[in-house]
């Protein structure tokens, strides 16, 4: 089974993980994407939302598990066919909420390109934007290296 491991700078990443945990807490009973469920059959709607929230929470738990005590010592995270898909989805959920909560003031072009002087941002937007880029990098790594594993899974 193909596995990708990357070593991260603990000094750089640990503050971002605190942001991810904070956002994860806020998402525990709330959907990250602003989907309208108005077109869903009314008797399906609540169960639909609950199932989406449950799937979101499961994926975020897999993401957070990457940054456990072992990571605190080694700085290494590993991705494989088992965790690639939930980690990808969790990164998307957290990025959406980071945008909603901290980065509303940024142009869509900036969000899409990531092209911004970090120093131009005040806290907490600065740390949120770094976290936003960090999670995008994780997604790109997984897609680049584990695309086939995800599609076959």
């Amino acid at each position: 089974m193909k596995r990708v491991e990357i070593r991260l700078s603990l000094e750089a990443v640990l503050p971002l993980i605190a942001v991810i945990r904070e956002v994860a807490d806020a998402l525990s009973d709330d959907l990250a994407a602003p989907n309208s469920l108005a077109d869903i059959e009314p008797d399906l709607r609540e169960g639909w939302r609950e199932d989406l929230v449950a799937a979101q929470n499961e994926a975020i738990a897999v993401l957070l598990a990457l940054f456990d005590e072992t990571f605190d010592e080694s700085g290494i995270v590993g991705f494989d066919a088992d965790n690639a898909e939930p980690v990808l989805r969790a990164c998307a959920a957290v990025r959406l909420r980071l945008r909603e909560r901290f980065l509303k003031g940024l142009d869509e072009e900036v969000l899409e390109s990531g092209d911004l002087e970090i120093e131009s941002l005040e806290e907490p937007a600065r740390k949120a934007f770094m976290c936003y880029l960090f999670l995008a990098t994780i997604q790109e790594l997984i897609i680049q290296h584990l695309d086939t594993s995800i599609l076959d899974g």
Partner: peptide, 11 residues
């Protein structure tokens, strides 16, 4: 949406 990566949406 301006958040999700193009490569992610394709996947």
């Amino acid at each position: 949406d301006p958040v999700n990566l193009m490569s992610y949406v394709v996947l």
